[in-house]
Design a protein around this nucleic acid. Structure first.
Lengths: 148, 148
DNA sequence: AAAGTGTGTAACAATCGCACTTGCATACTC
DNA sequence: GAGTATGCAAGTGCGATTGTTACACACTTT
């Protein structure tokens, strides 16, 4: 039930773009700070674009930009844009329908799992990319605007 | 990230043992209701044994038993006994320490991630195996004691 | 004590998703 | 038009999960 590293990297990328304050961020530069490859970042940005969180400018001087203010991007939005898998994985092959327990175990568990997921998502909805970016500035004593 | 079905299967197994009401459950039978192999179940039970949730009886008529009342086994206990990975996965290779954002992004995110995880775990701590087993009985109109 | 039963564990194959890399087409800016 | 940056396809490597076979060990029953 773990997340991929995409979520953490996506938050990293979005915080970085936020602190660029309007200057486009190239995928190659983003890849450098995130210690990964430019193609990985572009795949990530492709998901963020589809979710309406970022846009991309082609050509010289281009790069990634936020599609809306960082204050309006919640970590939950990032999570949903980037994660494919469900928080809870059930039986690889469905349980035996002819067994007393197997026939209803999934239905019996579902409300509890849904509540756990809801609590999880509520917390991610309470934090924005802007707040993460502010924390980065506070912790790292960064002087804005961010170059690299 | 590849996700594990162990948690769902473990709850299934524990609920089944609960409804057996003291009669040992063989790994082979547990494997049948869970639509998997006996060795998979035994590996699962090995973890549950180590966590003090179940015990095993060898020999003829043997099988798995609860180590304590089902009312005292929380879903959180099962989760911790069975899941290896962290809820959030961070960068595969740590972010660039020489970059303004890379140097502090993990520290900046951590409080938020911890809160989400805590909320998630709190919900799992509120439900017991006994309650799941009772739900199975209610939904499936099962007549106790459970045979197979 | 001997036979039968069930667990515990090791070793190996198969599968799947993630991450990385290369290469190239496409689109935009200067 | 030259240069730059994204978008995407294809193939590799890796690790975790799951499934399978095999076998040693321990306990119960007769």
């Amino acid at each position: 039930m773990p997340t991929s590293s995409r979520f953490a990297v996506a938050v990293h990328v979005l915080a970085t773009i936020t602190l660029r304050d309007g200057a486009p961020a190239r995928s190659e530069d983003l890849a450098y700070t995130a210690s990964t490859g430019a193609v990985v970042i572009r795949a990530l940005l492709s998901r963020l674009n589809s979710a309406g969180l970022t846009t991309s400018q082609l050509g010289s001087g281009g790069g990634a930009l936020l599609a809306k203010p960082a204050e309006q991007i919640r970590l939950l939005d990032v999570y949903e844009a980037v994660e494919d898998t469900e928080l809870f994985t059930t039986h690889r092959t469905p349980p035996c329908k002819d067994c007393a327990v197997g026939a209803s175990i999934l239905e019996a568990m579902q409300p509890s799992l849904d509540q756990a997921r809801a609590a999880f998502e509520n917390e991610l909805a309470r934090v924005t990319v802007a707040e993460i970016a502010a924390e980065v500035v506070r912790i790292g004593h960064i002087t804005l605007p961010l170059t690299w």
